[in-house]
Design a protein around this nucleic acid. Sequence first.
DNA 1: CAATGATCATAC
DNA 2: GTATGATCATTG
Length: 222
Amino acid sequence: MINRPCNEQQLLDRAQALAGLTLAQVATDLNLTVPQTLRHHKGWIGNLLELALGATAGSKPQQDFPELGIELKSIPIGINGKPLETTYVCITPLIGIGGLTWSQSNVCNKLKKVLWIPILSDRSLPIAERQIGSPFLWQPNQHEQQLMRQDWEEIMELIALGKITTITAKVGQVLQLRPKGANSKALTPAIGSSGEQIMTLPRGFYLKIPFTHQILINQFNL
DNA sequence: CAATGATCATAC
DNA sequence: GTATGATCATTG
């Protein structure tokens, strides 16, 4: 078992030590077996990194390292450095959101400080051979903050107005709202078009690929 | 062939 | 069901 890092530098050092290793090497160190496919183990890489870095495991709607105020996120990238997938941020509250502001939101809270760990992936590359890239700590600059805040406010307003059923993944410049549940049968209460309560799919906030791509470009000067 | 909407595993 | 970790796979 790995203990929790006491400070930011220790976490960074630990993450940097993983750079260049394959997922198989890390898994072996932790006494874990590498799945053949991620099809039935979608969160495996994320959990592996949490374990390797000493994150507090659990399903809490907060940061991975609350003491440090840091959120850990792995992001699959191709050989050209482009993210392969959007990045899940958190679940979206659908009711009782009156008066909720951006700075109070879980999205803002989580994205204040993120330790990104790129994973050199590819649909056809065996999980075990995928390589961990250089981790880096990111904090949104003023421009990025504003973009995220704009999208968040637009989306939350639509939800509050009972227009959740009209929201698609196309709404928003850098953030998007997408279904986030076990399947299309999982339902949760939300606000209907006339203010009544309806049942709909749980939604989650995601970071769009061009946005995370830009973060990587800024970081590595690609 | 990228993006959107759907889905998988697990803990509680 | 909610929330964590995400990727899958059909569609436009």
